[in-house]
């Protein structure tokens, strides 16, 4: 898979197979292992579904980072065009352009952009586009021991 990226479908997205997910937090830690975000700044997190939401004894989880939306609220809300949607669907935040206004943080329905209190700017999951461009998988996708978290293509769900 790592050498075929040029032939991959255009749009990329995360696919989370909740039935396979064992709630091991590896994806979240793999992200931190790779990017070493500031304390409290989380790009990918694993959320256990507590009993109030999911009233079964079986535990269930969902792993969430940036969804790289088709119509990104962050991009639309940004006053300085710090966000870019690449042709392959990856929503990139150019932190050098960010003024830290917080519009994206308030707009995103998934809580993906986070505030970096050190740089006083927003930041979020990049889908590891620099790794994708080098033919590698995103750190979290590569880490998942049960292949519950995969790279997929909304246009080609079977892929």
């Amino acid at each position: 898979m790592t050498t075929q990226h040029a032939s991959l479908p255009k749009k990329r997205a995360f696919l989370v197979d909740v039935e396979r997910c064992i709630g091991c937090f590896t994806c979240a830690m793999a992200c931190k292992n790779y990017y070493h975000q500031e304390t409290g700044v989380v790009w990918r997190q694993l959320y256990p579904l507590d009993e109030a939401i999911y009233p079964h004894r079986e535990r269930a989880f969902y792993s969430l980072a940036c969804n790289h939306c088709e119509n990104p609220a962050c991009l639309n809300a940004c006053p300085v065009k710090a966000y870019e949607k690449r042709e392959d669907g990856v929503v990139v935040h150019h932190q050098d352009r960010c003024i830290g206004c917080g519009n994206c943080i308030r707009s995103c329905p998934y809580g993906a952009p986070r505030y970096n209190p050190v740089l006083k700017k927003a930041e979020k999951c990049s889908l590891c586009h620099e790794r994708l461009d080098a033919g590698e998988q995103p750190a979290c996708v590569q880490s998942c021991p049960v292949r519950a978290l995969r790279l997929s293509c909304p246009e080609h769900p079977a892929w």
Partner: peptide, 9 residues
Amino acid sequence: PRNASAAPF
């Protein structure tokens, strides 16, 4: 910390 829009990997 590694900047998300850093140099290519």
